[in-house]
């Protein structure tokens, strides 16, 4: 943490997207688990994630960014899964 007299005048933040340095993963009480074999790669979880905590590389869904996921569970609710089997399930944290 900088001291007041070390800050940029006018409270200007010069580094775009610096919130990346602030990890919000510790807020989580439920943890999403991704089951790849049930995933149809629809990307809806990525689209709805309010915390940008789902990594998509080259158009493909990858693992969660657990450093940022707050565990809201929207992805698990919206996941269509495959043949009635969800690709995302929520589990209590610390189990």
């Amino acid at each position: 943490m900088k001291k007041w007299n070390e800050l940029v005048p006018g409270a200007v933040v010069l580094e775009a997207g610096s919130a990346e340095k602030f990890k919000t993963g510790s807020w989580r009480s439920f943890r999403p688990r991704w089951i790849e074999e049930n995933c149809i790669q629809c990307l809806f979880c990525w689209l709805y994630c309010p915390d940008m905590a789902i990594k998509v590389e080259d158009g493909k869904r990858k693992e969660y960014l657990y450093d940022y996921c707050k565990g809201c569970g929207i992805c698990a609710v919206e996941c269509p899964g495959k043949k009635g089997q969800k690709a995302i399930v929520m589990e209590p944290e610390g189990k």
């Binding site: 919130a19 340095k21 602030f22 919000t24 309010p50 915390d51 565990g71």
Partner: peptide, 16 residues
């Protein structure tokens, strides 16, 4: 262009 690490509540609609 809107990154993770923001401090909106879990499950908030606004970041989306």
């Amino acid at each position: 262009l809107f990154t993770h690490g923001h401090r909106m509540c879990a499950g908030c609609g606004a970041p989306t």
